[in-house]
């Protein structure tokens, strides 16, 4: 598993390297990290050195980008990523009640993953679904008009 991950990493880094040399531009660290996360589920901290070497930048450059963006992760999330919207329109629609229901249903807090690895819960500042809030985003699906009492039922759709 570890070896598979590493060879996948090497392949992505090779593509990123090709990409920037053909366009005669400095390497795009953010897009490289997003590509790695897409393939591996996260950007493992122990890979920072190898990524920096391949992109010909410093480890601090890579670690700096990795820690800056909320969507980049150093550990893989649960099978499904639940993002509760706390943008102002959802706040106005009392999304705190949805969050409380989510905590009750899953027994975890924001930033945590359920014991069975099924769900990770995160907060997000606005998913642009303000007219039909409160909103929950599960993976790429946006759910609107989420009633606190319907949260459990909604999560049943995700194995």
């Amino acid at each position: 598993m570890v070896e598979e991950g590493l060879s996948a990493l090497a392949a992505i880094l090779e593509r990123c390297r090709l990409n920037h040399t053909t366009q005669s531009r400095p390497p795009n660290i953010l897009q490289s990290l997003l590509a790695i996360q897409k393939a591996l589920g996260s950007v493992p901290l122990h890979a920072v050195g190898e990524i920096a070497h391949a992109l010909e930048v410093t480890e601090a450059d890579v670690a700096g980008v990795l820690s800056y963006y909320p969507e980049l992760r150093t550990r893989p999330p649960g099978r499904h990523l639940i993002r509760i919207c706390i943008g102002e329109s959802c706040v106005a629609n009392h999304c705190d009640r949805v969050l409380a229901a989510l905590r009750d249903a899953l027994n975890i807090d924001v930033g945590e993953t359920t014991m069975d690895g099924r769900f990770t819960v995160q907060r997000i500042y606005c998913v642009g679904n303000c007219a039909v809030g409160p909103s929950l985003m599960v993976d790429d699906d946006v759910h609107g008009r989420v009633a606190p009492q319907k949260v459990g039922e909604l999560l049943n759709e995700y194995e």
Binding site: Q31, Y69, P70
Partner: peptide, 26 residues
């Protein structure tokens, strides 16, 4: 099309260009 990675401040134009070049969106 390039997709970002969160960060509200990246909506500020100079931060957006930093991010487009792959750096911290400062």
């Amino acid at each position: 099309v390039l997709v970002g990675a969160g960060s509200y401040v990246v909506g500020e134009e100079t931060a957006l260009l930093e991010s487009l070049e792959g750096r911290r969106g400062v």
